[in-house]
């Protein structure tokens, strides 16, 4: 039995965890990530604000050596060398905009290391978004950024694709619906609630969760 996954998101700026606006210092990435592991997270997604290539070499290996969960890094990668550095520093996956996969030569790293992020918008239907999703065979995971009351329909159709879907979602009720309709995992702001509390909220739905 496979569990649905809850992936808290930590924003990082200049080697420190910050709020999504980059205004408040929320602490050390290693300490924050390890706390998420204790709280029941199934993985961690780091979203880097700004260009942090140099400082990444300082904080990422520390996270890799202390966090015993899979983790991914979403950052404004400029080239394949920068991606390689992030993977060598310990990231299990890097998140790249779907439109940039070819330009960043993502194929050389293999599907197991690449997550493609895609923003999907309702336009009287999800046809355009689904066509975009079908063309992301080079990514081993898709970070889907979409919302609204038709989201469950998108997740149900996307679930038929052979690639796992990680849904960016900060609404627990919407997340429950998306998981029930086929999303494989939820990426949500770590400050929203602990993974344990999120799983408590999801438990009545009968969704398979790692407890």
């Amino acid at each position: 039995m496979d569990a649905k996954r809850l992936i808290p998101v930590l924003h990082v700026l200049e080697g420190r965890v910050v709020d999504p606006a980059g205004a408040a210092d929320l602490g050390d990435p290693v300490e924050r990530a390890c706390r998420l592991e204790l709280e029941g997270a199934d993985g961690v997604l780091f979203v880097e604000l700004g260009r942090g290539r140099r400082l990444r070499r300082a904080w990422m290996p520390g996270v890799a050596r202390s966090l015993f969960l899979p983790f991914a890094l979403e950052a404004p990668f400029q080239d394949a060398d920068e991606i390689r550095e992030a993977l060598e520093a310990g990231a299990d996956r890097v998140v790249l905009p779907a439109r940039d996969l070819d330009a960043l030569d993502a194929a050389r790293f293999g599907r197991a290391r690449i997550t493609a992020s895609l923003e999907a918008a309702w336009s009287g239907g999800w046809d355009a978004a689904l066509e975009d999703l079908r063309n992301l065979g080079g990514a081993g995971e898709i970070l889907l950024k979409a919302g609204g009351r038709h989201l469950a329909e998108l997740c149900a159709q996307a679930a038929r694709l052979p690639t796992p879907i990680l849904l960016d979602c900060s609404d627990p009720a919407l997340a429950a619906e998306a998981l029930a309709y086929g999303a494989d995992a939820i990426a949500y702001p770590a400050a929203l609630m602990t993974a344990g509390a999120f799983k408590d909220a999801l438990e009545p739905t009968g969704i398979a969760l790692r407890r």
């Binding site: 039995m1 496979d2 569990a3 996954r5 197991a112 081993g140 694709l161 052979p162």
Partner: peptide, 10 residues
């Protein structure tokens, strides 16, 4: 099945 198998399994 979805591939890769990536996640937590009993």
């Amino acid at each position: 099945v979805k591939l890769p198998h990536e996640g937590w399994t009993v």
